[in-house]
Amino acid sequence: MASLSSMLKEHQLKQIKKREEIEQKRNAAVASSVHFTTKVVNHLNDGIAQTYLNQRKLDSEAKQLVANIDQFSRSINQWLTLMNGFNDSLKQLGDVENWAKVIENDMKEISCILEYVYKNSSNSTSIER
């Protein structure tokens, strides 16, 4: 019986060693899964943090772009105002030139009439004498 008793003790010792081995492997697996989970979460957080920073940069650049567009729009409106004033001045200059030509033609016509009247009156005065 001693051998049966020693076999039982030996079997119980093997079971205890197996349980300890299984427990060690389970602890190692838990530690590995915790380590893996931590690495995955950190990797995802890094990506999310970078995405957030990129979004903030894009928002900032979009605001700057809107401000630049507003400034550009104001500049364009100022240039349009200046160009419209310039066009109006050119139109007025054209109107003055046209007016001057009309006056010049009228003066030439009056001059021709006066010359004609003068010549005719000179001829009629010399005929009457």
Rank of each mutant, 00 (worst) to 15 (best):
A2V: 06
A2H: 11
A2M: 06
S3F: 02
S6E: 12
M7P: 01
M7H: 11
K9P: 04
K9C: 01
Q12P: 05
L13P: 01
Q15K: 10
Q15V: 00
Q15E: 04
K17W: 00
I22M: 07
Q24P: 00
R26V: 08
A31Y: 03
A31C: 05
S33H: 13
S33R: 13
S33C: 11
V34F: 10
H35C: 10
T37N: 12
K39R: 09
N42I: 02
H43D: 15
L44F: 13
D46K: 15
G47M: 04
T51Q: 13
Y52L: 13
N54Y: 01
Q55H: 13
D59W: 03
E61C: 03
E61V: 02
A62N: 10
V66F: 05
A67L: 04
N68H: 03
F72V: 00
S75A: 14
L82Q: 09
N84G: 02
G85N: 09
F86G: 13
K91G: 04
Q92S: 02
G94T: 09
V96N: 14
V96A: 04
E97V: 05
E97F: 02
W99Q: 15
K101G: 02
K101L: 15
K101H: 13
I103K: 09
E104A: 12
N105K: 15
E109Q: 11
E109C: 04
C112Q: 14
L114Q: 15
E115D: 15
Y116D: 15
V117G: 08
K119M: 03
N123A: 09
S124M: 11
S124F: 04
T125G: 01
T125Q: 09
S126K: 12
E128I: 11
R129P: 00
R129V: 09
